[in-house]
Nucleic acid binder design. Sequence first.
RNA 1: GGGCUACUAGCUCAGUAGGUAGAGCAGCAGACUCUUAAUCUGCGGGUCAAAGGUUCGAAUCCUUUGUAGCUCACCA
Length: 575
Amino acid sequence: MRQYLSQQRGGRGGGGEGSQSCSSYGDYKESYLKTPLLLPKNCLLGIIATMSTQPKSFHWADIYADKIVREKGPKEQYTCASGITPSGTVHIGNFREIISVELIVRALRDKGHKVRFIYSWDDYDVFRKVPKNMPKPEVLETYLRKPITLVPDTNGEYSSYAESHEQAVETLLPVVGIEPEYLYQAQKYRASEYAKEMRLALEKRDEIKAALDEYRTTPLEDDWFPISVFSNFTDKDTTTILEWDGEWQVTYRDDENGKVETIDLRNTSAAKLPWRIDWPMRWVYEGVDFEPAGKDHHSEGGSFDTSKHIVKILGGEAPVSFQYDFLSIKGRGGKISSSTGEVISLADVLEVYTPEVTRYLFASTRPNTEFAISFDLDVLKIYEDYDTCERIYFGLQQANEKRTDKERRIFELSQVREVPTEASYQIPFRHLCNLLQINSGDSDAVIAGLTDLLPSQEKRLRERCVCAWNWITNYSPEDFRWVLRGSEEPLIELSQEAIKGIKELHAVVEHLEEYDEKQLSEEIYAVAHRNEIDPPELFKAVYLVLIGKERGPKLAGFVITCGKEKILPILGRYL
RNA sequence: GGGCUACUAGCUCAGUAGGUAGAGCAGCAGACUCUUAAUCUGCGGGUCAAAGGUUCGAAUCCUUUGUAGCUCACCA
């Protein structure tokens, strides 16, 4: 059991490393103010707004940041907390809490405050249920009622089940610009770091019991104790506390084998506070000023509610909080919940949404409203919205003052790190999808074709290409996908008229450089009429020849984008 | 039984320091010999769920009611 402790994170490196990585944010505001702005021509607006001092913002993150300062008073440092029990895959719903806190952390830092952002892994909680999406459930089942930190990783990659979930998150969060200081509760409990706090809870047993009983349907037993013990014989929490000596000694019985043992809170790894006491204890221990919670906790009688009372008993006060709503998923099978099988995680979202756009999803939505993360055609709209937001930020698109302020703040908060000094390459997601399909997913070829792309825009565009291609291949509707036909594929059977039309079109495409999109469009119609074909028939024939489908991207633009090198060989087969 | 949230145009929703109601889509009209959930221009459209209250003034604050959804009272 010990080995876990020392192995897990090379001893508690959390503090130092955490604050180090966080400091990059501290400079973030300053650095973008200092950096000379290389903005596109017509964006005076952007410059003016950037140079003015922090405008009053009505973004929810700023409103909460103000509220924290107002309610907690001036402080050297504010502590914002988030956390979760890694009892299964950490899903995108859990991510909402993390990023909500991070946005508020940023808002506080932008106002010049020092902030400690802690993320607590509650990996000393008991393993209660085997989630459906885990390998070797029969193995996991034998670990029920033991602390999660002792459950093995049935994928065999990490030293524990808890760590496998923790690592999945910790490696990914920096990608979206989130770098909290991680606290591992198993480590702390097993090192008896909370001995005093547990003793305090025992001393306040009656008050705590009364607070909890207020909302319980059946009151706690008279011999209830505010701590729970993992048996040293079985590691399970199926134990009964028999006695507390009024100081550090606690005697418990293992309910499975009847063995009795007395432990000392100062040097045991077995004792733990139950959740409803554990939470407020840590508010006091870490001095938490802000921590949100899901709506399940925020109901009257829920754990946040009882914690508000218990924290006072423990000599502290409750943090500022808000409740965030749940997320749903659109355009992809699978539920969001970790207990019901397939789970949507941050990794899945990042397949389709770039880090900035992922942040944008959360930064642009009030946390207390439910919304759906879409994998369907809404993806196009989300990217459009993000691009609009960016154009407004850089003054490339006009909007009224109120809207401009709002979009500007959302844009800032959506950035992974410092705000770029120039807009990204503005290309509609739909168009990018077509370019990628023309080039069979080869983003190098796409990028090579964009002659006006600035070097500084390339990295962001490449990230977007990856997401676009993932979306096309995995999520886009069938209508949306197409592949240019190759030379080995069988010829399409066409009417005489259609073949004449194709031939004539081939001749037109040979001089493609002489046409712009509108002219080419008109010429296609002219071809149809000269050959007495209904235009829709000709379109259909051309799409069949080019991509094997009856419909496709708008033809004239499509042909021009593909270029004659690609189009001529295909049409040429019908000459 | 308690709590929370929502109710704004046909649809999806913006609208936080109370000051003459907004957007997108749909619709209508016109343009385009034009297929895609993206062509352009113009237009119409709302007792802001209901009632009461505070106010010079309320979608916004308070009270009550209705409808819908979520959640707690087991565990974490």
